[in-house]
Computed example of a mutant assay.
Amino acid sequence: MSEIPEIDAIGLLCPLPVLRLRKRMMPLSTGDQIILIADDPASIVDVPHFCNQQGHQLIDSREDGGAIYFTVQKG
């Protein structure tokens, strides 16, 4: 099993983390997962909203050292 790809969006403000996530998810297959790492407080709202709007599933979100790690599965 290959590692889940990560997107480093530390230091980027809304809407850039979600825009990077959208771009990187386009070539993925349904069921593939990706991790977004962001520190913008707005991402706590933006990422779940993006997932709901686009039919993806937010598998996990956790905070570690000021960064928020979102694991998203392509729907």
Rank of each mutant, 00 (worst) to 15 (best):
S2C: 11
I4M: 09
I4C: 02
I4S: 07
P5N: 09
P5I: 08
E6N: 03
I7R: 04
I7S: 04
D8W: 00
I10G: 00
I10Q: 04
I10Y: 00
L13R: 12
L13W: 08
C14F: 05
C14E: 06
P15Y: 00
L16M: 07
L16S: 03
L16P: 01
L16R: 04
P17N: 06
L19D: 01
L19G: 00
R20D: 01
R20F: 02
L21P: 00
L21C: 01
K23Y: 06
K23P: 00
R24C: 02
R24D: 08
M25S: 01
M25K: 02
M26D: 11
P27V: 07
L28Q: 10
S29C: 10
T30G: 09
T30H: 14
G31F: 08
G31Q: 02
D32Q: 09
I34G: 06
I35L: 08
I35P: 05
I37F: 11
I37Q: 07
A38T: 14
D39S: 12
D39H: 10
D40T: 10
P41G: 11
P41I: 11
A42L: 11
S43M: 14
V45Q: 14
V45F: 15
D46C: 13
D46V: 09
V47P: 04
H49K: 15
F50M: 09
F50A: 09
C51V: 07
C51N: 10
N52D: 15
N52H: 11
Q53Y: 09
Q54P: 08
G55E: 08
G55P: 08
H56D: 10
H56T: 04
L58R: 01
I59D: 04
D60E: 15
D60V: 07
S61Y: 11
R62I: 11
R62K: 14
R62P: 10
E63T: 15
E63Q: 15
G66I: 15
I68F: 13
Y69S: 03
Y69P: 06
F70Q: 03
T71M: 05
T71V: 06
T71C: 06
V72R: 03
V72I: 13
V72K: 05
Q73I: 03
Q73M: 10
G75P: 09
